[in-house]
């Protein structure tokens, strides 16, 4: 049971990492009906996503060993990226909360208004 929870946690962290990467792109922010990020904030989000991706790799190798850890990470990577794509395609509103949270990365509290109808 603990193992299931750990693998689920790995998957969720990777999912969040890919969601952060996706939500720095204009079409996906439009799909979630949230304003666009400033360039600096997008960079911060991407760095955070990168850290999460590498962090899961380290944790997977630490827990499972080199061979299994790397395979588990690589497989979950593909699967979680696909999950982000499918959710952005079918139910983008599920990522709206994360997209809004990412606005806090805008350092000067200024956001570019976005015409969501467009």
């Amino acid at each position: 049971m603990v193992t299931v929870m750990i693998y689920t946690a790995f998957g969720l962290i990777l999912f969040v990492a890919f969601a952060l990467l996706a939500l720095t792109q204009f079409p996906h922010r439009r799909a979630t009906k949230t304003p666009q990020l400033l360039p600096g904030a997008a960079l911060k989000a991407r760095l955070l996503a990168g850290l999460l991706l590498v962090g899961v790799l380290i944790m997977a190798i630490w827990r499972e060993g080199g061979g299994f850890g790397f395979l588990l990470w690589g497989s979950l990577l593909s699967l979680s990226a696909c999950a982000v794509s499918l959710i952005l395609g079918w139910w983008p509103h599920l990522l709206a909360l994360l997209a809004r949270l990412m606005l806090s990365l805008n350092s000067r509290h200024t956001t570019v208004r976005l015409d969501v109808k467009g």
């Binding site: 890919f18 990467l21 996706a22 792109q25 593909s78 990226a81 696909c82 794509s85 395609g89 079918w90």
Partner: peptide, 25 residues
């Protein structure tokens, strides 16, 4: 990279699905 548009026309959706399965996998 993350684009999948299920509401678009079938051919567009097929290409998105093909690209998604190909690139992410």
């Amino acid at each position: 990279f993350f684009t999948f548009r299920p509401t678009k026309k079938p051919r567009r959706m097929l290409l998105d699905l093909h690209n998604m399965a190909g690139v992410l996998g």
